[in-house]
Computed example of a mutant assay.
Amino acid sequence: MNPTVVVMGVSGVGKTTVARLLAERLGLPYAEADDFHPPANIARMSAGIPLDDADRRPWLEAIGAWLHQRREDGTGGVVTCSALKRRYRDTLRAACPDAWFLHLAGSHDLVADRIDHRTGHFMPASLLDSQYATLEPLTADERGGVLDVGPTPDRLVDSAIRLLALPTPAGTSGNPVNGDIA
Rank of each mutant, 00 (worst) to 15 (best):
T168I: 13
V157T: 12
H103E: 03
G150M: 11
C96W: 02
M1C: 08
R89V: 06
K85R: 15
H117R: 15
T168Q: 13
A160L: 09
P38M: 05
S126L: 12
P39H: 12
T80V: 07
D129E: 15
G174N: 09
L92T: 02
G64E: 01
A83D: 04
R57I: 06
Y88D: 04
P58Q: 10
A31I: 02
H37A: 02
D158H: 12
A47Q: 13
A99D: 00
S46I: 00
A125R: 13
T168C: 13
F36D: 00
T4E: 11
L147F: 02
I63H: 08
G171Q: 04
M1E: 14
P137W: 12
W59F: 06
E24N: 13
P151E: 12
E136S: 09
D141M: 11
A105C: 03
W100N: 01
E61H: 06
Q69L: 12
A170M: 09
S173W: 06
M123D: 15
V157I: 12
M123I: 13
D90H: 05
T168M: 09
A133L: 07
D34W: 01
V111Q: 01
V149P: 00
S173D: 14
T134Y: 04
E72K: 14
G64D: 01
F36L: 07
R86S: 14
M8K: 10
E142Q: 14
D129N: 13
Q131L: 14
G174K: 09
L147G: 04
W66F: 06
G77E: 07
L51G: 11
R56S: 05
A95T: 00
L138Q: 02
L166P: 04
D55R: 07
L156V: 10
A140K: 03
D129I: 06
D113L: 03
T91Q: 14
R57T: 14
S11P: 06
P58T: 10
N41T: 07
P124G: 08
S159V: 09
T134S: 15
T17V: 12
R86W: 13
A125K: 10
P39A: 11
P167H: 12
P151L: 11
P167T: 15
G9H: 06
D35Y: 00
F122E: 12
G9P: 02
L163E: 01
A165L: 05
I115S: 02
S159F: 01
P167G: 10
R114I: 07
A43R: 15
L128G: 04
F101I: 02
N41Q: 10
D180T: 10
P176G: 04
G9L: 08
R71C: 00
P29S: 07
A99F: 00
D53F: 03
H121T: 05
A95V: 01
G145P: 00
S11R: 00
L26S: 04
G120H: 08
A40V: 11
N175W: 03
L102T: 09
D116Y: 01
A170R: 14
S11V: 04
L147M: 07
P38V: 11
R114E: 12
V149F: 00
A160V: 08
G77N: 06
R93P: 03
A62G: 14
Y132N: 05
Y30C: 04
E24H: 13
M45F: 03
N178K: 08
G48Y: 03
N2A: 15
D113A: 09
R57L: 15
D180Q: 11
A165C: 03
N41K: 12
V111M: 02
A43Q: 15
Y132C: 07
N178I: 11
L128Y: 04
A112L: 13
T172R: 08
R118V: 05
V157W: 05
